[in-house]
Design a binder for these strands. Structure first.
Length: 494
RNA sequence: CGGGGUGUGGCUCAGCUUGGUAGAGCGCUGCGUUCGGGACGCAGAGGUCGUAGGUUCAAAUCCUAUCACCCCGACCA
């Protein structure tokens, strides 16, 4: 075994995360732009796959895409009291343009509730204009003191849904619906189980009545907020005068929502599935599904093997798969194997002279056991119906990843009833999903964070936590002993 | 903004204490031999030593200033 370019997870999880990103060529630090990142082609390809699937789901639920300005008049941010308080510290502001100082500075959008509120006010007159269901794919900027690739950077890419409704009831339905879209996407496409829940007042979006979240469990036991959905009530409607005339002829403020997921999901993908060999990518998000490595010694062998590999690639592409035939010379097959494994290609096919003669190939899954000699398990596939064999393997691989993630999640969730056990669960650098009673006060929430670094990730939907079907039950706060009505989810988080 | 650290070929770093005019490994280019789990040989290309001053016959090395980045803390809809 040659040098291992990736730090093992057990040695240093944070370094492992950075190494996977570098070795899989997903992204790198922008270096000349503080706190920002360059998303490299292989990383962006994963985001494009995420976008394509999410966009289809948004359209299916009746939403339309639009685009709003990157720059927002500074005064807009100030119009909603909580919004300005939440975002002011992390705004980047444009004060000059065209060689002159601007009369009013612009902020680079940290999120678009305000500018969209302004235009919604123009677009909405009547109850017949509602609901208005808009989505925007965009980049946003939040000046962060401490950044982590994909998880928290100055600039990031996301989608933000913005909707306006005639009643609070419709607005609440939308918030629930879109959180479920995210949950389904995470499970079906990312092979990642998440827990739906409601944020505490302390963790709520600045300007929202209620924030819902999906929380993912990373391999090191920490939680990652993977998506959010906000009931904005009439807060932005009032701030931007977004009104409609109802059927009785009265003017009312609209009820609004916003919801988003971002390139942070790529971080979630890495920390959910990947291993010490590099990126592991579920087939439904893999930029390359199959890498074919030709094996040969002589020129004649090379010609026949490559001809065969290209033929297989063409056949698989007809099934809608992305296939790479690695024809690079001067590189031994083993080196190619490691490279494609680092990059998270789910399946590799090896085709050599013996395979050409037998009309077969060797298939190696990205996650495979080892045989009695310690060599990776491979299987032989016939070339006559290669599409069938490859399709089956990719389906099995997608299912395997979800199953593994679910098992890991199940093992990491515990229920705790006393402070001693709670502290043990978060001792040192440890984290997990801990279900415990909480007295409902922000003071206690902050005291627990101060003592253990663990925060309340959400008040989970009852029944959404595997193995713990009844979270709504009377109990005593794990910290203060005060009465509590339900268990909440604690974890350290990214 | 506190505390600590680092800036030297594309990357990782040595050299600095004790000044003498820049090195290694990897990567890259070319040729040849290799090729079923990370190849090897030979020949090459590539560096204003973060920046600006200062000391000196002479500075990557000593002094001053400054900038950038990293780690820990504070902060993080």
């Amino acid at each position: 075994m040659a040098d291992h370019p990736i730090t093992p997870r057990a040695t240093d999880y944070a370094q492992w995360y950075q190494d996977v990103i570098a070795q899989a060529e997903l992204a790198e630090a922008a270096e000349v732009v503080k706190g920002c990142m360059v998303v490299r082609p292989h990383g962006w390809a994963i985001w494009e796959k995420m976008q394509a699937d999410l966009d289809r789901r948004f359209k299916e639920t009746g939403h339309q895409n639009a685009a709003f300005p990157l720059l927002i008049p500074q005064s807009f941010i100030s119009k909603e009291a909580q919004h300005v308080e939440g975002f002011s510290p992390e705004l980047a502001v444009v004060t000059h343009a065209g060689g002159k100082e601007l009369e009013e500075p612009y902020v680079i959008r940290p999120t678009s509730e305000t500018i969209i509120g302004h235009f919604f006010a123009k677009w909405i007159q009547s109850h017949r204009d509602l609901p208005l269901l808009i989505n925007q794919w965009a980049n946003v900027m939040r000046w962060e003191l401490r950044t982590r690739m994909f998880l928290r950077t100055g600039e990031f890419w996301w989608q933000e849904g913005h909707t306006a409704h005639a009643t609070h009831g419709e607005c609440q339905e939308e918030v629930v619906r879109m959180l479920d879209v995210y949950r389904d996407f995470c499970r079906e496409v990312m092979a990642m189980p998440v827990i739906r829940g409601i944020k505490t007042a302390n963790e709520r979006f600045a300007g929202a009545l209620e924030t819902r979240t999906i929380e993912g469990l990373m391999q090191d036991g920490k939680a990652l907020q993977c998506g959010t959905s906000h009931d904005l009530g009439q807060n932005f409607g009032k701030a931007f005068d977004v009104m409609f005339q109802n059927t009785a002829g009265e003017r009312e403020y609209v009820w609004q929502t916003s919801w988003g997921v971002s390139t942070r999901l790529i971080g979630a993908l890495i920390m959910t599935h990947s291993d010490d060999e590099g990126l592991v990518c579920p087939p439904r998000l893999a930029p390359i599904h199959v890498a074919i490595v030709p094996i040969y010694k002589t020129d004649e062998e090379r010609a026949s093997v490559i001809e065969c590999a290209r033929r297989v690639a063409t056949e698989l592409r007809a099934d809608g798969l992305t296939v790479k035939v690695d024809e690079r010379e001067g590189m031994k097959p083993g080196a190619k194997y490691y490279e494609w494994e680092r990059k998270g290609v789910p399946l590799r096919l090896e085709i050599g002279p013996r395979d050409v003669a037998a009309n077969t190939c060797m298939a190696k899954r990205r996650i495979a056991g080892v045989d009695e000699k310690g060599k990776p398990m491979k299987e032989t596939l016939g070339l006559d119906d290669i599409g069938v064999g490859v399709g089956r393997i990719l389906d099995e691989f997608q299912a395997l990843l979800l199953q593994r993630a679910k098992e890991r999640q199940a093992k990491s969730i515990i229920s705790v009833d006393n402070w001693g056990d709670f502290e043990v669960a978060f001792a040192g650098n440890d984290s997990r999903f801990v279900l415990a009673h909480w007295d409902g006060t922000t003071a206690t929430e902050l005291a627990i964070k101060e003592a253990t670094k663990a925060t309340i990730r959400c008040l989970p939907y009852d029944g959404d936590v595997p193995g713990f079907p009844n979270l709504v039950e009377p109990g005593r706060c794990v910290k203060t002993g005060a009465p509590s009505t339900q268990r909440v989810l604690f974890a350290k988080n990214y």
